[in-house]
Amino acid sequence: MNRITRPVPAVDENLAVPLYHQVYLVLRENIRNGVYSASAVPTEAELCSTFGVSRITIKRAMHELTKEGLIVRQRGRGTFVTESSRIPQVKRDSLDDLLRNVMAIGAATEMKRLDGGFLPATAEVATKLECATGDEIFATNQTRLSRGQPIALIRAYVPRDVAQQLPGRDSSAQPMLAQLQQAGIDVARADQAITATIADPATATALAIDVGVPIIRLTRLVFDAHNRPVEWLTALYRADRYEYRTTLVREGLGADGERAEWKAAS
């Protein structure tokens, strides 16, 4: 069985996009997606090692982030993420609608497995799955294709004991949520967010698009009936190949017409 590691943001000196701007794009999305906390922005030396570039390149990327107001650099203390102005929008949808949508996507697309297997949980994944950093979890990394063209890059993570209940975990073309449902895992709820982001070099290569092109980022944390996380998923969709639709219906309208609530039907 193949083992996978956490993807390392890559820069490509052969691209027309300057190295500092590639680094800036990756760091900006990490900040906006919560990868870096206010006290955990890597040092310049760490970033040089991560990206394999010079300190001058890192300094220029950090300068761009500072100009944009995403970070603040304090002499003798380090670099910190500023407060985000983005306010999450939360609404309730039907889990049955989500399951139907996931099943439909699985039936309408093809899956190309990039790698997968059991591996130690990173700090980020451990936080989502409520396990210890380094605990063994199961992960898959795949692209979804439509008519042979990539439309999404999807990474899913599940606890080890949950993965052991999935007979097709290494070969199934079904989305992970569908596999959980088919295996009898009592899926009770899911917290899902959809945001806009841009393609870093690694994502651009996987989705056959240009670096910096707008894409859609979907994250989903799935819980069972005991409120235990059983899947953490991140998906990056090509904005030109993905559409999210919701139909809103009115319910709870009283006779006086004064009280009404809206819910998503699909």
Rank of each mutant, 00 (worst) to 15 (best):
T195C: 10
L180S: 05
Q192M: 15
P214C: 04
P201A: 14
L207W: 01
A208P: 08
A188M: 10
Q182A: 15
A199G: 01
P201V: 03
D186I: 08
V211T: 15
D210P: 06
Q179A: 09
D210F: 04
G212Y: 00
I209S: 08
I209W: 04
A193S: 15
D200W: 04
A206C: 09
G184H: 02
A190Q: 06
V211D: 06
D200G: 15
A204H: 00
R189N: 13
A199W: 00
A183S: 14
G212D: 01
A188Y: 10
M176R: 09
D200Q: 07
I215C: 11
V211G: 09
A199L: 03
Q181A: 12
A199T: 00
A178R: 04
I209A: 04
M176K: 07
I185G: 08
I194P: 02
I198T: 15
I209Q: 08
Q192N: 12
V187R: 07
Q179N: 13
G184V: 02
I209Y: 05
R189I: 02
A202C: 03
A188C: 12
M176A: 13
A204P: 01
A188T: 05
Q181F: 09
Q192I: 15
M176T: 15
G184T: 02
V187Y: 03
V187C: 09
G212H: 02
I194A: 08
G212A: 01
A183M: 03
I215H: 04
P214F: 01
I209C: 14
A199M: 01
A199V: 02
G212C: 01
D210G: 13
D191G: 06
A178C: 07
Q182C: 06
A183F: 02
A204I: 01
L207D: 04
L207H: 03
R189H: 14
V187Q: 05
P201G: 01
A196K: 10
I194D: 11
A199F: 00
G184E: 01
I209T: 13
D210S: 14
P201F: 00
Q181S: 13
I185V: 15
A190D: 06
V213D: 11
T197G: 13
D191C: 06
A196H: 09
I215N: 07
P214R: 01
M176D: 12
A202G: 12
T205A: 13
L207G: 05
I194F: 08
I215D: 08
L177E: 06
D191L: 12
I209G: 08
Q179V: 07
Q182M: 11
A204N: 03
I198G: 07
V211I: 13
V213T: 15
A188H: 14
Q192D: 11
T197K: 04
R189T: 14
A178T: 10
